[in-house]
Design a protein around this nucleic acid. Sequence first.
DNA 1: CCACCCGATTGATGATCGTCAAGCCGCGGG
DNA 2: CCCGCGGCTTGACGATCATCAATCGGGTGG
Lengths: 252, 252
Amino acid sequence: MRVVDVERVRGLPLFCGASDETFNAVTAGAFLQKFPAGTTLLHEGDPVDFLYVLLDGLVELEGTWNDKETTLAVLRPVSTFIFAAVALDADALMSARTVERSDILMLSGEALRRAMQTDAHFSYAASQELAGCYRGLVRSLKNHKLRGGAERLANYLITQKVRQGGAETFTLPHEKRLLASLLGMTPENLSRAFATLTGYGVVVNGPEVTIARPVVLERLAKPDPLIDNHQPPSPAPIGKAERELWPASRAS
Amino acid sequence: MRVVDVERVRGLPLFCGASDETFNAVTAGAFLQKFPAGTTLLHEGDPVDFLYVLLDGLVELEGTWNDKETTLAVLRPVSTFIFAAVALDADALMSARTVERSDILMLSGEALRRAMQTDAHFSYAASQELAGCYRGLVRSLKNHKLRGGAERLANYLITQKVRQGGAETFTLPHEKRLLASLLGMTPENLSRAFATLTGYGVVVNGPEVTIARPVVLERLAKPDPLIDNHQPPSPAPIGKAERELWPASRAS
DNA sequence: CCACCCGATTGATGATCGTCAAGCCGCGGG
DNA sequence: CCCGCGGCTTGACGATCATCAATCGGGTGG
């Protein structure tokens, strides 16, 4: 593992409060691996032996039932995933698959659980990370139960715009088919939803989207800080906990 | 607070591994309160100062957007709630409301966070609780994105049957309007979904439901351990973590 | 005892969404 | 260069679901 990668991991909120001792204990048996696009890292129902850390690339978390599948989240670096299953030493509830070529660090679940039982500060950071993940899912569930398709898309676009810096036009981070699955609809209906948003000042050109009249779109989307997390981009790596705490901006 | 209540709290997985010292520190400023049915304990967006523990009664967690509301969970004793917001000292993402008259214990969030930073074992138990809550939400999200209304109801009924002991007929734990909101549909459509299930051996008599032909219903419901948690009832109080770990039955 | 309220049910109608089919377009391989 | 594949779009249709309205029945209070 390169020094620069070690530093990126060390800089994660999950680890930056830990002692050198526990950090070394946790990263001792770790290994960094590169995966091509489309690789299934972990399958639903499998026992989970490692905590995964996405250092570079793009990863999709998906769930399956009755030959249908849906994507529950799309992760960008730097993110940990399946931490909850690791913490409980339980089977995975979702599959993980690379969307692009990705660099992924794998940390021993055993070692992590041992470290949590020893180092209170590390364990506290772990709780914060898990709490942040939990709140992300609460947002997602509210998004799906309370909003219709076009509203979900409108809010997704507004969130993307903010996260990519706020420029009038931005680029979708992945294929539309994946976006459709994330938003809980079919690719066909995503197309139609985009067509609907044309009437609200949204112009689509392949993967490029421009929001020509933000005010009009927001009147449809009705973004809500209790559902949408409009956190602007940050230079430092950020965890699920900080993302939740951002509005109070208690850090920095 | 009565001795019997103290013991019930002490027996929670969250606390049963903690030292007497941290348990006393956390429960020092705590108070037990009785609320009538229909009381809003906490409103969406409010700062959260306490961890709530439902000792008796029934509590609904609900989310709101654009004058619509949906219930995200219905809790029965003994359960903690809004732990994630407490852990992060963040605003609540959902409201909490009593469905029945309830006994609720309120623990200082400040004290809890301090205890987590001091006592690694307590912090570890907190992580497990949060991880269990997280996985509960993953199940919920998959349930909603992958299944239709009648399927969600069928699985809900099967889960209730198992949790209430497995008898052929059992009683719905609350009003149908609340169930409809939990399942993500209108009361009208819940009625129609029940009518549909009549063809699969489900007989409804007010709040009483009997599953006459379990095999037929299961062929429709296709219950899945990665979505539904068919944990049988237990004499000891159980936390969100244990509920997730049940299939491995590593405790007794 | 009756009036009233509220939850549950049923029907009719429209909106939303999924499915099937066809066509378009950009890209890479033969 | 042309072919073919895959992602995207569009149209037509059917299934699911929400909404509005009316009705029924149990429980409460006057």
